[in-house]
Amino acid sequence: MLEIRNLHASVEGKEILRGVNLTIGDGEVHVLMGPNGSGKSTLSHVLVGNPKYEVTEGSITFNGKDLLSLSPEDRAHEGIFMSFQAPIEIPGVSMTNFMRAALNAKRKYFGQEPIGAGEFLKLLKEKRQLVGLDAHFMSRGVNEGFSGGERKRNEIFQMAVLQPLFSILDETDSGLDVDALRIVAEGFNMLRTPQTSAMVITHYQRMLDYLKPDFVHVLVKGRVVKEGDASLGYAIEERGFDWIREEVEE
């Protein structure tokens, strides 16, 4: 599904990614771990085409397409979704209108008619219930006055509505209490299919327990320095990152 080759990227002239290689196949869940500042969020933002980040070298292929040549919106239409670490508040734009605009833009991209009003409301209701968001959130501005936990649930709700092929969860678990984390993780698991994949950035074992990832990658100083299965994640939870740093230096 996704192939990242020798990816270098910088933000405000400072190089953050220094040759990332990563392959993610259909139906796989990959967890990305690494100390603060290692480039996890940068990699996420580069994948979704945030104009603040500049790719200086390397390539990203997504289902055979050159991802770097696509605009952020076309990447979204092609099936890439990011759950933001800090979801943005958009006062005055209701969740309903926001989701309708997003959904219809995707349908237009694939030459489909806009979604009917009844069908749309039914879809919102179904997906809301999946993550336990009350109906009144739909008439509020996007993330306007949402608590930290509500914002994260809202990200998974949007993911459920847009049904992406590849999802990036950038610390979606941070700031959630145990119940909210369970709801979010279970919601995410329900959306999994043999065709959909995900890259999950997390620091917590609990998330590993819920997601049961196929692979764990460790990013240090802008490079993937260690890869393994879920057991690598538990090892980091127990021992921290220093032993990996030492291994790399050797």
């Binding site: 979704v48 085409g49 945030n50 104009p51 603040k52 605009s71 952020p72 919106e73 979204a76 239409h77 979704f81 990011m82 933001f84 979801p87 943005i88 508040e89 958009i90 926001f98 605009a101 997003a102 959904l103 833009a105 995707k106 991209y109 996007v142 949007q158 847009l162």
Partner: peptide, 17 residues
């Protein structure tokens, strides 16, 4: 707000829209 603009584009809403 550039961050709001990008958030919307990530959800597939074209920049102009």
């Amino acid at each position: 707000d550039e961050s709001a603009l990008f958030y919307m584009r990530q959800r597939g809403i074209p920049e102009r829209e």
